[in-house]
Write a protein that binds this DNA or RNA. Structure first.
Lengths: 218, 218
DNA sequence: TCACCATATTACTCGCCGGTAACTAGCGCG
DNA sequence: CGCGCTAGTTACCGGCGAGTAATATGGTGA
């Protein structure tokens, strides 16, 4: 019972800050969930603290204010997406492949705690200062997506009349996943991602033929 | 100058309640705007009252509580969309035509005060009771869209593997308009609607040919 | 052993905001 | 006229929740 104690009496000091980081993130994760479930302003710090089995002042050891917690939640979410898209722009033969990979990851992240925050916490909830940062971050992501679309238009692997609007439409469809995704539902995140991206690429209008070879002659 | 006074000294009593309705709606419209701009919980009734050049207790002549105002805002928005889709299901030859018309109206409504509320006010902000109503109303709308898609699949004018997911994706893309639309921007609501619906129908993948007649033979 | 720092607690302050009470100004009506 | 109704007002209450002492605990390092 106490054997494991003997195994790791963690003598050192360097993992203290590791501990601290872990706890900090635990606070953020729980906060993110609470914010998504019940809204930002209806979620009190007492409530968050309670979920963590601590009391409110403890939170102030890790954060300066509620707004800081809030801002961190969305920042992490945006960071995840930003990184994911940046990574995806590496591999893939055509721009379409790269965009598809990027959107797939994007969609998956929208089913995760911090990803959900981006959609469910409106920028209206943010204090003016972090609102600016939020917008800037979003714009950066948007520009990445636009670039991919533009490349796709250039190499012929994507068709888009208005790049800006296309980016908005696509992001919107994926952002919205955060609003209806149910972890207990039948579909796994990667399945949802797969299907949504497919729908966006294929469109609702029937295609005459999947492969040009099958094209019926008139 | 006072001539018009003589013309209409509105003797009657029936437009008292007309006045009342108008004021009631003015409150709702201003509230909707404020909620969208600054979030629900950060918008005080004093603030709403101030925008209307009245004081807070006046609002209680028209509504029982802040939550009632809130619930009304989203209800009106949902009602607009519901009606719009119901209307659109009348005309149109193919199901695709009907769906296209419905989505076009849907998109336009998302640029309007009450339409914006649906997206920008998360259901997390709503009290449990109106949350149920909200969900029920949304489900109804969703079912209308699904029906249209199903009809389209049946008559061959629409292609969709997973109807439920397709409906979510499409709604998401359109709902998101409420988050980025800027009344001072270059694009008019109907132009945005046109483009977004187009993107959703055409998809990002290039089509081999627009019209079957132009299909190149392999 | 003692001083120190991090962590967490209990017990508070204080301002904001939803909601109410009580009063006033105009207006139609018998 | 004076009754009563509607639409407003000013002045207030009460509670919730963010943020702050002041304090206890316990491991670390000299």
């Amino acid at each position: 019972m106490d054997a494991k104690q003997a195994v790791s009496p963690w003598k050192d000091t360097k993992d203290r800050e590791h501990d601290r980081r872990e706890k900090r993130e635990a606070v953020l994760r729980v906060a993110a969930q609470a914010f998504c479930e019940n809204g930002v302003r209806t979620t009190s710090l007492d409530e968050i603290a309670e979920r963590l089995n601590v009391t409110k002042p403890t939170l102030y050891h890790y954060f300066r204010s509620k707004d800081e917690i809030l801002a961190e939640c969305v920042r992490i979410g945006l960071e995840l997406i930003d990184k994911a898209i940046a990574d995806a722009t590496g591999d893939g033969r055509t721009a379409r492949d790269r965009l598809e990979a990027a959107l797939h990851r994007y969609a998956e992240i929208m089913t995760m705690d911090f990803g959900m925050c981006i959609t469910r916490i409106g920028e209206a909830e943010l204090p003016p200062q972090s609102r600016k940062a939020f917008r800037a971050h979003k714009r950066k992501i948007d520009e990445r997506i636009r670039s991919l679309i533009e490349e796709g238009v250039a190499d012929g692997s994507i068709s888009a009349r208005d790049v800006r609007l296309t980016a908005f439409t696509v992001s919107g469809a994926l952002n919205w996943i955060a609003r209806w995704y149910d972890p207990d539902g039948p579909l796994k995140p990667h399945e949802i991602a797969r299907s949504c991206v497919d729908i966006l690429f294929e469109g609702l209008a029937p295609r005459v033929s999947k492969k040009p070879a099958e094209c019926t002659r008139t």
